[in-house]
Structures are given as C-alpha cells and as structure tokens.
C-alpha cells in the first residue's frame, strides 16, 4: 500500500472525525450499559437516542452553514449554538 498523502489530512478535519468517532463509540457503549427505548419529546415522532443524535448532528451542520452564509462572525459562536442545540435535542427531543 502506498502512502495516504492523497487523503490530504489536516489537523482540524482529523479532530472533527475523531470527535464524531468518539461520539458514536460513546453512544454505543451507553446503549450497551443502559439500553434506551423510543420515547416522545417535542419532535413529532417517537425517537431513540440515536435518532436524536442524528437529528442533532444534521441540524448542527445546517446551523454552521447558515452561520457561514449569513454572518461574518467567528465560527465558534456557531459551534456553541450547535452544542446547546444538540444537548437540548438529546434531552427534550
């Protein structure tokens, strides 16, 4: 196998993917230790933890895109809003 230079890794993207991988691993371990079930929150359908995580992450992606598209402010704000949104989604979604 040749080098993996063509994958063009950077530190920020590496941190991003490692974070995603850690979240997924964490969710798996959590599910094994204390299995969760479907429940109803403010979303219009019953969801499991995994569903809410997915909705949270997808929403966060669009929060970032909206932030980049509509404002010139620092991206850290978008990250903060996303984390708050993600946690709210996990708790009450």
């Amino acid at each position: 196998m040749g080098s993996l230079e063509w994958m063009a890794w950077t530190l920020p993207t590496a941190i991003f993917f490692v974070t995603i991988a850690l979240i997924l691993t964490g969710m798996t371990v959590w599910q094994i230790i204390s299995p969760g079930t479907e429940r109803r929150g403010f979303l219009p359908m019953a969801t499991t933890r995994g569903d809410r995580l997915f909705i949270g992450l997808l929403g966060s992606a669009f929060i970032h895109l909206g932030w980049i598209g509509l404002t010139d402010l620092s991206l850290w704000w978008a990250l903060a809003i996303s984390v708050a949104y993600l946690l709210a989604m996990m708790r009450w979604g």
């Binding site: 798996t28 599910q31 094994i32 499991t48 995994g50 569903d51 997915f54």
Partner: peptide, 9 residues
Amino acid sequence: FLGDKHMFF
C-alpha cells in the same frame, strides 16, 4: 439489534 435502524438509513 444495536443500531439496526441507523445502519439501515
């Protein structure tokens, strides 16, 4: 099984 629906999607 663990993550079945998510795997499917």
